[in-house]
Computed example of a mutant assay.
Amino acid sequence: MVEIERKFLVTSKAFKEVAFNQNRIKQGYLSSIPERTVRVRVKGNKGFLTIKGISNESGMSRFEWEKEIPVDEAEKLLLLCEKGVIDKTRFEIKTGHHIFEVDEFYGENEGLIMAEIELQSEEESFEKPIWLGEEVTNDNRYYNAYLSKNPFKSW
């Protein structure tokens, strides 16, 4: 129940040419405090409820619990969320032995494209595609909970 991931900015839209899957995502936060974020997400035709703990010092690891819920319930819960629902398309790209999830944001976060990779350990190596830019793993501004209240367009 520990998520280990690294986040990067994306330098071009070349990733779209090699994506094997994509889904529109809408997500909101019932609680966005860093010690325990509670997220509601509609991804395609599925709903999810996720609880995440605070990140460790490196920003790579934190507790994560997620359960699939009926999509109609997730849509109702989105109406209860804090202001600032995130709207994005997630593209999945296989690179080497890993899958990158690349999010292209819309609305107040339009212009932001960010890639995440989940790892088995913080030291695990991985192949970096040419469109992968600056690492922003330990920059709290790139957490979706932060972006919901402080949109990218306002930076």
Rank of each mutant, 00 (worst) to 15 (best):
M1F: 04
E3W: 00
I4C: 14
I4H: 15
E5L: 01
E5A: 05
K7F: 01
K7V: 06
K7C: 14
F8K: 11
L9E: 04
A14K: 14
F15K: 14
F15A: 13
F15C: 11
K16P: 03
E17T: 14
V18R: 14
V18E: 13
V18N: 15
A19R: 13
F20L: 00
F20H: 14
N21E: 15
N23F: 04
N23T: 07
Y29P: 10
P34E: 04
P34H: 03
P34T: 02
R36P: 05
R36M: 15
R36F: 04
T37Y: 00
T37Q: 11
V38M: 07
V40M: 06
V40D: 05
R41C: 12
G44Q: 02
N45K: 01
K46P: 04
K46G: 01
G47W: 08
L49R: 01
T50G: 12
I51T: 05
K52C: 09
I54R: 02
S55L: 08
E57L: 09
S58A: 00
G59L: 09
G59N: 07
E64I: 00
E66W: 00
E66A: 06
K67I: 12
V71W: 00
A74P: 04
E75W: 04
L78R: 02
L78C: 04
L78M: 04
L78Q: 01
L79T: 14
L80F: 15
C81S: 09
K83I: 08
K83L: 09
G84Q: 12
G84C: 09
G84T: 15
V85W: 02
I86M: 12
D87S: 14
T89V: 14
R90I: 01
F91M: 00
E92W: 11
E92A: 01
I93A: 11
I93N: 11
K94S: 12
K94N: 04
T95E: 13
G96W: 00
H97R: 08
H98M: 07
E101T: 08
V102H: 12
V102R: 14
D103P: 06
Y106A: 08
G111R: 11
G111N: 10
L112I: 03
L112Q: 04
I113E: 11
A115P: 09
A115E: 07
A115I: 06
S121E: 05
S121M: 02
S121R: 03
E123L: 06
E123T: 05
E124V: 00
F126C: 10
E127M: 09
E127N: 10
P129H: 00
P129S: 09
I130K: 01
I130T: 07
W131F: 08
G133L: 08
G133Y: 06
E134A: 07
E135C: 03
E135P: 03
E135Q: 09
V136G: 07
V136C: 08
V136P: 07
R141H: 13
R141G: 04
Y142M: 12
S148Y: 10
K149A: 15
S154A: 02
